Amino acid sequence: MPNRATLHLPSDAACPCGNGAYGSCCGPALDGSSAPATAVALMRSRYTAFALSDIDYLLRSWDAATRPRELALDPDTEWRRLVVIDVVGGTPEDETGIVEFRAVFRDADGRGELHERSRFVRRGDGWRYLDGEHRD
């Protein structure tokens, strides 16, 4: 299996977030050519970054106030599906946004699910992930 940290998807491949083709969905955010315009677009791009093990993007898109110094991802985790449950604010006119989602994954222990209500803030240079509350 290739190292997912070096995996680059073709622009016409299905985006891991499930919202269209990678090149017109999350690809521009991950390659730095275009910033996500909304909190939900940032959340989708962060999910895609987890799926592709793009630690640099995850750290870049994390607000400096809460960003960890470093981040390690489990190479055995395969992110399978994203479901957006609720979006509050997070438009280009807003300063804050909330996105609730479920992310299905498979790891060494089998199938799992992450359910989180994430908070986002818009800074001068774009949207940033602030923090999240895990739900059961």
Results as ranks from 00 to 15, higher is better:
76 D>F: 08
109 D>T: 14
90 G>A: 03
17 C>A: 08
62 W>T: 11
99 V>M: 04
3 N>W: 11
117 R>Q: 07
63 D>H: 14
123 R>Q: 09
114 L>G: 01
24 S>F: 06
34 S>N: 12
35 A>C: 12
84 V>Q: 01
29 A>N: 06
100 E>F: 04
43 M>S: 03
14 A>E: 14
118 S>A: 15
70 E>L: 04
70 E>D: 12
127 W>T: 00
103 A>G: 08
24 S>G: 05
93 E>V: 07
129 Y>V: 06
134 H>M: 13
52 L>S: 01
21 A>L: 10
21 A>E: 09
45 S>E: 13
92 P>L: 11
101 F>D: 05
53 S>K: 05
2 P>K: 15
14 A>V: 15
100 E>H: 08
133 E>L: 12
102 R>A: 13
3 N>H: 11
61 S>F: 04
94 D>E: 04
135 R>N: 02
23 G>C: 15
5 A>Q: 15
65 A>Y: 01
120 F>W: 01
67 R>Y: 06
85 I>L: 14
131 D>A: 10
112 G>F: 08
57 Y>F: 07
56 D>N: 13
123 R>I: 07
90 G>C: 00
18 G>D: 04
2 P>M: 15
56 D>C: 13
5 A>E: 15
46 R>M: 13
73 L>C: 07
70 E>P: 04
48 T>C: 12
90 G>I: 00
13 A>T: 10
128 R>K: 08
28 P>H: 06
14 A>W: 07
91 T>R: 03
134 H>G: 13
114 L>T: 02
105 F>L: 08
44 R>M: 07
132 G>A: 12
96 T>G: 06
31 D>C: 12
114 L>K: 03
127 W>P: 03
106 R>Y: 07
134 H>P: 13
23 G>P: 12
108 A>T: 14
6 T>E: 14
66 T>C: 08
9 L>D: 09
14 A>H: 12
37 A>D: 11
98 I>N: 02
74 D>Y: 04
54 D>K: 05
56 D>F: 09
79 W>R: 05
130 L>R: 08
74 D>R: 04
45 S>N: 13
34 S>K: 15
70 E>N: 09
51 A>D: 00
9 L>W: 01
66 T>D: 08
110 G>E: 02
77 T>I: 13
96 T>P: 00
105 F>Y: 14
76 D>H: 11
78 E>R: 15
82 L>A: 02
39 A>L: 01
50 F>D: 15
52 L>R: 00
130 L>D: 11
52 L>N: 00
41 A>P: 03
101 F>H: 00
18 G>I: 08
114 L>F: 10
37 A>T: 06
26 C>F: 00
19 N>C: 12
43 M>Q: 02
12 D>A: 11
91 T>W: 00
45 S>P: 11
45 S>M: 11
68 P>M: 05
50 F>Q: 11
24 S>N: 09
8 H>I: 13
86 D>K: 10
87 V>E: 02
